[in-house]
Nucleic acid binder design. Structure first.
Lengths: 130, 130
DNA sequence: ATCTAGTTTAGAATAATTCTAACCTGTTGA
DNA sequence: TCAACAGGTTAGAATTATTCTAAACTAGAT
């Protein structure tokens, strides 16, 4: 499906910048990236888009569901006195975290760790809201 | 166990500020907090510690294992073109994320969602390193 | 072709965190 | 006990990611 149609489908005016970004990003392959890496990629293609616009566009894309933003529990560092391995509930209404003891969660199916790597900890985040 | 001993055990010189913070934080109860909330708590007790010192102390406490820092995948926002529900490997060496399809992970035990709340999504992060 | 609402932009503003450099203070050993 | 110094604290500057502002631009409807 072409990019113009994709943008129209979600009622975003297909501007030059949005088309450029959508062509880079929405090619059907799964990618992870940041605003800055995208800006670099744009400029290596010989174009230029301001960082403000990149943020605007990516945020719009997220709002309409074309993109997802990886969870990052807000922008401040949260410290936890529970230093043992454990999981969390995240109250989406308040941002509050609550501990879940590790024995409260067990897996019946678990992915193979990629060749050459070792498991260095598993964190489960259960988002809740009222 | 008293706070002085705790600090000596981890070879941190027990200064006034560290003792104050340790008394607030390491009382055996599980808490989540930020540098700023701790500073406020300190000042309501009639003391004053600069934010820089709070960060210094908390980071030291984390390094020696008295505290844990909640994972936040670095400080930049990461976007993901995979908008469906899925999980991630986090390569601790590079910070790189890789998708895990949701059917790769299933649970045999799962905690009860707190009364009055509903499940709003589960994210599993498997940290790996070589 | 024109109008208008929505976009883009440079640069300022904001906010979390770290750095710097000067000052201060536990601890050690005489 | 106390001087010396390594390590700790601090205010404020620096850094970094992101958003805001206000002016200039443009897609799409008329």
């Amino acid at each position: 499906m072409d990019v113009l149609k994709k943008l129209r489908d979600v009622k975003l005016r297909p501007t030059k910048q949005r088309i450029l970004l959508a062509n880079l990003i929405l090619d059907g392959k799964n990618k992870h990236f940041t605003a800055e890496t995208i800006q670099k990629e744009v400029s290596t293609k010989g174009h230029n888009i301001s960082l403000a616009t990149i943020y605007n566009c990516l945020n719009k894309f997220v709002n309409v569901g074309l993109l997802k933003q990886i969870d990052q529990q807000g922008e401040v560092t949260i410290f936890d006195t529970n230093v043992s391995h454990h999981h969390h509930f995240l109250n989406q209404n308040t941002g509050e975290l609550t501990d879940i003891e590790p024995n409260e969660i067990t897996f019946s199916k678990f992915p193979k760790i990629p060749r050459g790597f070792q498991n260095d900890g598993v964190e489960v985040l259960i988002k809740i809201r009222d």
